[in-house]
Design a protein around this nucleic acid. Structure first.
Length: 420
RNA sequence: GGAGAGGUGGGUGAGUGGCUCAAACCAACGGUUUGCUAAACCGUCAUAGGGGGUUAACCUCUAUCGAGGGUUCGAAUCCCUCCCUCUCCGCCA
């Protein structure tokens, strides 16, 4: 959620930033008009409430003396009716403003490249080299079938397409990746958490996922709970409605969850195997920090995510995500993409975002300094999602015979060196 | 699922219609005292929004006692609905 005061005082800046994100700018003027109305209602109704409070105190005094206060009571009845009417108008204005605000994304930082789609993202760093064996690389679906470690048909039978199923060493490899990532992040100073996979509406709203993206979520009908699209949602909500101790910032969490996404509207795109799924596993990093630290924390978080890939010897690149492709709550975003030798393309495996105070304002996550309350900055980063990483890992490490060599750093987690 | 109890500021906890515009204590912070520590004493001690202001300190108003409605001139307090927590019973991994 953007700061209403910022919109009121810098409408031109807001419009410029929204244009950069290919958003309509009309809501800005609507909000400013509504805000003007809102503040008129507030001063009017508060004046009346002040009057009522004073006269009610007088009535109490008069009654104590045993005198008659009927006239004042009658007057105040009218005032109270008036207040009720004005309160309703005020609430309407506030709701209208909020409806606009819920549709407006975070403003992009100046370092974010301008653009419309992922084609306009700018490569920022690249590490490692493409697997270049002198044989035809099998894709992960073929490998999975040949080695009997992945079975998308079974997943579809149980749940539907896009629900992966792992077997034997395939399942162990997945579990090994998760444990390896969690242990590594723990040693980098993150507190590990294990959390609910279903969250209530308030938590989804605080993380700015709902109502804007409600169509993309799995939702349980009788209880109005949402299957989390990312661990970011429960972790951000740990500190909802809290004033954090500034001495303890930055506060860093890592946690594993399954992630659920309906991917409504993207049917027919990247449908093969793991490339686009409804359920996947992810280890998430979240950082609550001082506003002035957030960009430095972002670089650090990026390095923590990349560190995993380097230890696994996976060829990756980082792109600076452009204004048109950034996430709703992000002020700046890096995507980490891993190389798939069989698809011959880059696959997004992580996204590191600085959400500045956008979520913390909605979620009321603050800290205090010099007697003033300020919003913390919140960053999230995948560290990382396993599905596409899995693709890159098994494809890149395959032998000409179609076996998979487990990277050294993972072997103590898998307790085997080869999948054959 | 059934029965009961309860939700008050960072914590404990008083408060059943009007000097409660939430007592007291603890924690925290600032200060005095002190050779140092401790103790004692004094002070500060919510959040959000509006208005004023030398737009900073500050002043002022309004709202907030789980959430939302209602009754009333006036609600932490009375009524209704919902949510949550605890205890017991049932079921169950």
């Amino acid at each position: 959620m953007l700061d209403l005061k910022l919109i009121r005082e810098n409408p031109d800046l807001i419009k410029e930033k929204l244009k950069a994100r290919n958003m309509k700018i009309e809501p800005v003027d609507s909000i400013i008009k509504l805000d003007l109305k809102r503040r008129e209602f507030i001063s009017e109704v508060e004046k009346l409430k002040g009057l009522r409070n004073n006269v009610s105190a007088e009535i109490a005094k008069i009654k104590k003396e045993g005198l008659n206060a009927d006239e004042k009571i009658a007057d105040m009845k009218k005032v109270s009716d008036n207040i009720k009417e004005l309160d309703e108008k005020l609430a309407d204005a506030e709701n209208e403003i909020d409806n606009f605000l819920r549709d407006i994304p975070n403003l992009p930082d100046n370092s974010v490249p301008l653009g419309k789609t992922s084609d306009d993202n700018v490569q920022f760093r690249i590490w490692g080299e493409k697997a270049s064996g002198d044989f035809k690389y099998l894709d992960h679906v073929e490998l999975g079938k040949k080695l009997d470690i992945l079975d998308f048909g079974i997943g579809a039978k149980i749940s539907g397409s896009g629900f992966p199923f792992y077997r034997g060493k395939g399942a162990i490899l997945e579990r090994a990746l998760i444990n390896f990532m969690l242990d590594t992040h723990k040693s980098n100073g993150y507190t590990e958490v294990l959390m609910p996979f279903l969250v209530n509406r308030t938590s989804m709203e605080a993380a700015e996922k709902v109502p804007k993206f409600e169509e993309d979520m799995y939702r349980t009908e009788p209880d109005d709970l949402f299957a989390i699209p990312t661990a970011e949602v429960p972790i951000v909500n740990i500190h909802r409605d809290e004033i954090m101790d500034a001495k303890h910032l930055p506060v860093k969490y890592c946690g594993y969850t399954a992630c659920f996404r309906r991917e409504a509207g993207s049917y027919g795109k990247d449908t093969k195997g793991f490339l686009r799924v409804h359920q996947f596993n992810k280890v998430e990093l979240i950082n609550f920090c001082l506003p002035e630290d957030s960009y430095a924390q972002m670089e650090e978080m990026l390095n923590h995510a990349c560190g995993i890939l380097e230890m696994l010897n996976i060829h990756y690149r980082i792109v600076n995500v452009c204004t048109g492709d950034m996430g709703f709550a992000a002020n700046k975003q890096y995507d980490i993409e891993v190389w798939s030798p069989a698809e011959n393309k880059w696959l997004e495996a992580s996204s590191v975002s600085n959400c500045t105070d956008f979520q913390s304002r909605r979620a009321m996550i603050r800290f205090k300094r010099d007697k003033k309350t300020e919003y913390v900055h919140i960053l999230n980063g995948s560290g990382l999602a396993t599905s596409r990483l899995y693709v890159s890992l098994i494809e890149s490490n395959q032998t000409p015979e179609g076996k998979i060599i487990v990277p050294k750093s993972l072997q103590k987690y898998t307790n085997f060196e080869i999948i054959d």
